[in-house]
Nucleic acid binder design. Sequence first.
DNA 1: CTCTAAATCAGTAATGATTACTATTTTATT
DNA 2: AATAAAATAGTAATCATTACTGATTTAGAG
Lengths: 127, 127
Amino acid sequence: MKNYSRQREAILTVLRSTDTHPTASKVYHKVREIIPNISLGTVYRNLAQLKESGEIISVNVGDGFEHFDGNAKPHIHMHCKKCSAIIDVMLNEDVISDAAQKNGFVPENMVLVINGLCKTCNQNDVN
Amino acid sequence: MKNYSRQREAILTVLRSTDTHPTASKVYHKVREIIPNISLGTVYRNLAQLKESGEIISVNVGDGFEHFDGNAKPHIHMHCKKCSAIIDVMLNEDVISDAAQKNGFVPENMVLVINGLCKTCNQNDVN
DNA sequence: CTCTAAATCAGTAATGATTACTATTTTATT
DNA sequence: AATAAAATAGTAATCATTACTGATTTAGAG
């Protein structure tokens, strides 16, 4: 059902070799250095597929772009509204405010999105 | 610099009278019940302005839509990937896993976005 | 090694949420 | 009432993302 593809491998390699949370477009341009004629549609399709399979995750910081992350382990993303940096903070370190202080980050507004299944949907069936 | 407008007031009223985290389009249709000829552009402009002034916040759960929230206090949003419900959980209740358990929520993937200023940007200047 | 079907691709067109634009109306102040 | 800034309705433009198509690649069987 899922065949190997050089394109998908290259995309995964790019995502795993950076901590900058690139957009689809950024990934596209980076992968073009490896596969010069890869198409944007292929990048989008594979990003969706890698996300579906849990190999990568995505973050939406409200700038209108989906940002991709090769680190699929649950962690905190701190988003600077000025330079747009997205900073990783592993979850076992500390609670929210501590984590913020340790990074010299001044939190203004925080949103936690937990994706999963709510009580009702989880009881109704398996998928 | 900021004048009163009936349209903005109606938008705020709509947002404060629901906990469903509507999209701009949903807000538009709801406000049309109060002001039948309000335009979509006006809704978008005022949502941006209300967000800027901190009267409302927005959540992006990765479904391609920006969701608006009349409750500007920091809180957790749990997003069901099946029914798309966005459930509010106040922050002082408990830590993440506890909050999830209490709501019968099965977390699969969690992303915390903290908007603010990073160390570098905060040291460089005031705004 | 062929053969075949399913999966994937490159390239391009279409979609649709959001933003920009413009002429008109409303607000707040004198 | 007069005036300037702010806001509006309506429409057009933008652009990230998705859908589509005919060609290519993959994987497994013979």
